[in-house]
Amino acid sequence: MQIDEGAAVGTSAPSKAVRDFEAGLVRRKVLVYVCQLAFGVFFLAFWQWASGRLIDPFFVSSPSAVFGKIYTWLLNGELVRHLSITLYATAIGFLIGSAIGFALGLLFGKFAFLAEVLDPYITALYSIPKLALAPLFIIWFGIGIESKIAVSASIVFFVVFLNTFSGVREVNPIYIHATQIMGASQWGVMRTVIIPSATAWVITGLKVSVPYALVGTVIGEFMSANRGIGFIIAQATGLFDTNSVFAGILILAVVGAIINGLLKVTEGWLLRWRS
């Protein structure tokens, strides 16, 4: 949005046309929310109806059974116990992976020669399905939380690293020259130009990698663990307890959606300077 020379930022009261236009936007937004809610209700209702009528509940469970299961877990503390460990591993893995990825991304972006030398190795490492490393991490770090952290960190690392790297290379050299002449030191340029300029890329990387971090943790828990949502799902699968499997999946879906929503808000705030 551009404002004409002389016109101050939002001074006079909006005209009727502007108010009508804004009211229209609000109405549309409300309509979207209502339809989203309606779709969810319809889906659950159909699932409930179909379960036992069209398909055996043994395979697809049913919303009432699933919510009942979650309610039971909530009451007996199982939900908090397992969810907290999964979230904790995800968060720590995410923090470690993104911190290392960000730092190395800056370093490689700054030293083009180093980046060129290591490029084929990075591409090769990147091509490895990170989940294939999970068994190795279990050998190295044991079946405790450390191996799950390692899996999710290794996934997050690459996404953030590659995004930061691209972000640093995309920095407009005009900004670098201009700030150097204004008196910026190497660190000054890094702090005031390179890092903020790369933020858009890094945020995108972070947004993409959070669900991956969750996936990494849960896969780790599938393979070997004694706690966590992934563990619940794996254990229930072994017992053909589809109610618990669906309950676990639903919890993961909700958690993923919440995390993504939070990231979107953060992104909007951090990138508020963009059009």
Binding site: I174, Y175, H177, A178, T179, Q180, I181, M182, G183, T192, V193, P196, S197, T199, W273, R274
Partner: peptide
């Protein structure tokens, strides 16, 4: 660093 420098390009930092 003892000069001021202004070009045709937009050098104002958009994130500040």
């Amino acid at each position: 660093r003892r000069v001021g420098y202004l070009t045709q390009a937009d050098s104002v930092l958009p994130w500040r």
